[in-house]
């Protein structure tokens, strides 16, 4: 496979994942707004921050309003991570790696792009927002379904998966990075309704309220939430789960190519050193410091993959 193709697959699936994550964050923000328990402006600021687009938003907008934030995240072409630009990026990369994709996947991603262009052609008003978000979820799910159902389990699939999970791990780590302070057990107002909202926000932004209840019951405890998002291997957006998948796919690649690359060593180290401990040990180390370290390591693994598999000249 061409290095460029590996690169294109990796980014195609990163962009798809990013589009989903961004639209989920918009949904979360929208829901919090409805509870009216916190200041909408502060929440949207933290949502933009979680999406990693706050700085660019502020550079391009005078005032932070809900409408402006939603528009920035859904459709702004100036925002490289908006749903629209992400899906365009996914489709652009899909075009580049067209020969590596099945017809089903190509058509799904093409449909996804055409549909999102229609959906997001104009500003989405508040009334239509839930419907639009719902449709975006469906069209991206279609690509995922076609991928699972029709793609060979070979190096093509491995690069697609690595892109997906690197983006997802990055996203979860960023949520934790922005919200870590509400997960610290020392917070004074434990159990207050404000914290409940915050915790619910976090779970909502990883689509995991149901999963959490199933595992930990109805009581939100910050250490449980942290454990769930960081270390729980059953939870498909936890850091441990995502990193485990990356290691798995790098392992398949190593086997296919008969060569164990440095990125595999790096991801193994990340997993063993940081994701195989207890949540208490994490808090002991200091949650913020820990998350920063993991975020950096994930970045390192990504950069090493680019080198190992010759994404660029």
């Amino acid at each position: 496979m061409l290095g460029k193709t590996a690169n294109g697959l990796y980014w195609m699936y990163r962009y798809l994942e990013r589009a989903e994550n961004t639209s989920r964050l918009v949904e979360t923000g929208q829901r919090i707004g409805l509870t009216r328990l916190s200041s909408s402006e502060i929440e949207w600021k933290s949502i933009l921050q979680t999406a990693g687009v706050l700085a660019s938003f502020e550079a391009n907008n005078d005032e932070l309003t809900k409408d402006a934030a939603v528009d920035w995240m859904l459709r702004s072409r100036a925002n490289p991570s908006s749903v629209l630009t992400s899906l365009e990026g996914a489709r652009q990369n899909a075009r580049m790696v067209r020969t590596a994709l099945t017809t089903e996947v190509w058509e799904a991603v093409n449909r996804c792009y055409m549909k999102s262009k229609d959906l997001l052609a104009r500003k989405v008003n508040e009334r239509d927002l839930p419907q639009a978000l719902n449709e975006i979820r469906q069209i991206t799910a279609l690509v995922r379904g076609a991928t699972h159902g029709t793609m060979m389990r070979n190096d093509i699939y491995d690069f697609a998966r690595i892109g997906t999970f690197l983006e997802r791990a990055d996203n979860t780590a960023r949520i934790l990075d922005v919200k870590y302070y509400v997960l610290l057990p020392t917070v004074m107002s434990v159990g207050s309704s404000i914290d409940n909202v915050q915790w619910e926000t976090i779970l909502r932004s990883v689509s995991a309220r149901g999963g959490f209840r199933m595992s930990y019951g109805n009581d939100y405890k910050p250490t449980d939430i942290a454990d769930f998002l960081i270390l729980d291997k059953r939870m498909p957006r936890s850091l441990a789960f995502c990193v485990g998948k990356i290691r798995g796919n790098l392992g398949y690649l190593a086997k296919t190519y008969g060569e164990t690359p440095e990125s595999y060593e790096k991801v193994t180290e990340l997993e063993e050193r940081y994701l195989s401990k207890t949540i208490d040990a994490v808090f002991e180390e200091g949650l913020h410091h820990y998350i920063q370290t993991v975020l950096r390591s994930i970045g390192d693994v990504g950069a090493q993959i680019e080198i190992d598999y010759r994404f660029y000249e």
Binding site: L2, G3, K4, T99, L253, Y257
Partner: peptide
């Protein structure tokens, strides 16, 4: 393979494509 110019270079006297 579908290649672009920057996927290719002269290596050992041949035109070669950069693969993984």
């Amino acid at each position: 393979e579908l290649v672009e110019g920057h996927d290719l270079r002269v290596v050992d006297g041949r035109v070669a494509m950069r693969t993984t």
